[in-house]
Design a protein around this nucleic acid. Sequence first.
DNA 1: CTGTTAGCGCTTTCAC
DNA 2: GTGAAAGCGCTAACAG
Lengths: 347, 347
Amino acid sequence: MEGRKGDVSTSREAAATARRKRPTILDIAERAGVSKSLVSLALRNDLGVGVQTRERILQVAEEIGYRPHVLARALRERRTMRLGVALTSLENPYHTEVFAAVEDAADGAGLSVLLAHGKRAGGHLEERINALLDLNLDGIVVISSWADPAMLQTVSRRAPVVMIGRSLEPVDGIDSVNNDDEAGAALVVGHLAARGHSKILHLTSSLRPAGLARRHGYEAAMRAHGLEAHIRVLARTRGGALQPDLDAALADGYDAVFARNDVEAADVLDHAWDHGLAVPTDLAVVGYDDSMLARRARPRLTSVHQPRQAMGARAVELLIERIDGRLEDRHEVLSPHLVVRESAPQA
Amino acid sequence: MEGRKGDVSTSREAAATARRKRPTILDIAERAGVSKSLVSLALRNDLGVGVQTRERILQVAEEIGYRPHVLARALRERRTMRLGVALTSLENPYHTEVFAAVEDAADGAGLSVLLAHGKRAGGHLEERINALLDLNLDGIVVISSWADPAMLQTVSRRAPVVMIGRSLEPVDGIDSVNNDDEAGAALVVGHLAARGHSKILHLTSSLRPAGLARRHGYEAAMRAHGLEAHIRVLARTRGGALQPDLDAALADGYDAVFARNDVEAADVLDHAWDHGLAVPTDLAVVGYDDSMLARRARPRLTSVHQPRQAMGARAVELLIERIDGRLEDRHEVLSPHLVVRESAPQA
DNA sequence: CTGTTAGCGCTTTCAC
DNA sequence: GTGAAAGCGCTAACAG
């Protein structure tokens, strides 16, 4: 906007040359000697376009490198064939693994997937979700226990929402799919009890729904086994460390730890390494999620496997059902299973 | 399309009730008793709208929960204020860390970021990039050494592209920012030599540009230190394991390993654990990237730090410059530094 | 089978 | 100050 008009238009032209204007169906129509609607129909394989004509049109489209303008199309169709995924913990491998599962499923359904990453604090996640939805996506899957129910409800007025993971109460108007956290926790306690452990600590840093459910599952299972429940709630600092130090938490002579997820189990493993504690001899450790962290850890981590492929697939199906008009809410719960590895091997 | 018209419209109505039609500027105009263009102007703070009127319009917009229709706007403006990021290895923490850096930078510039994840094989990445670009994003940053130069060039005709990471030759028409891999490798060799190591193995699984550059840097540095270079090229299986087994690679009595990246360094650490090798006493290990894996590993991994924050920020700046019309290519190289930890401590 | 036409929601001259 | 009108690229009636 500075300089003379001449300058501006010159530089515009230069830029335009560098980045050529994209061809439209009109260009195809012209080159193929048909009308623009014909092209539109041919492009979308509408029957009722002469085979010859269609052939020619497709060919021309190919030639001039035509790409449909999805924005224009979406403006008319009110459908983008795109799903959004909102995440808060890109740094937790389990979450990216779930994302990959959703992506696989969507791919299979001919939908493409966009990811938005929001920080947990403030309204950041909501902002990102809204920015995503501004693109008129057909639906959105939220992978985050940090999503506020009220916020999700607001969002769901714009597009169908399915949440992978747990919310305290089912949220009106949004579907969900998660694993049975209570059952998962019971699996862990059962396994540890069978190994002969009795001083089993449950370590958690989260008062979020999934964490709570695992904790309740742990308590119930301990009771069922006639064992006393021990719980330590730690906070996670900005830097990612657990506070107060694990030292204190582990000082009471526990012989096994069930951590709320793999990340925290890995923290325990690290702590054991740093303090010369032998795992599983001195301390058995079990995680939750069975993420890359569990496979990668040394000793390898026994962990509860969440059926992420199935969860991702189901999430996409639920979304599609919603898009097609389903009105009732659906909440699916899949069963986890325990993957036994070195950090708490079979008895 | 089936059933009588009445049925259809009834179910339509039901769905419409559940998911209300979004308000448009026309709704605002009506409610505020002005014309639609007035609203548009007011919404974008165009001076030349009565203060009173503007006030009222904004208020009404707020009231009815108006959200601009970015697709419609983009259709006119040819600008979406959105950037795309294309990735191939969501499972490599370094890549997600770079993504987060890009996101931070974009946030700062008022741009929002969408992520697309492509598999490395076939044309999958290209497909995903094109799907992303179909949304008329203003630019795209590619974080993948798997991106084919010719493909990138094609893509860059649609929107500005900047690549974070290395390509063999600078690609015409696209910008890049990366770290100096040769210098990074030299840092490693220098450090290991200073610790008194002489049988230093370089382990790599990649014949991609960044891997090659590190390898060349290693060779040159070894030569400079009067040491003999030893290189093992391993393949990675679908499952993620290195093939053939590390056993063979490490059988020749090396006292230090410089791995191509943290993922492979972690493989070496795991291997050492599995075989009772003490690190760093029996074997010193150094990685590259200084990702979460390095911080998390036990012993903690000495690794070359790529300045990802700076790289992400620079990438976004380069993109913005392009959007504003820059035509010459730019290739930036930032300096890495070594982060010394337990797997190869200070001499 | 083919072409014409009217928008989708928004921005932007250009008159009033 | 304000409003009317054209048009971004595409789809979907509807007439020929």
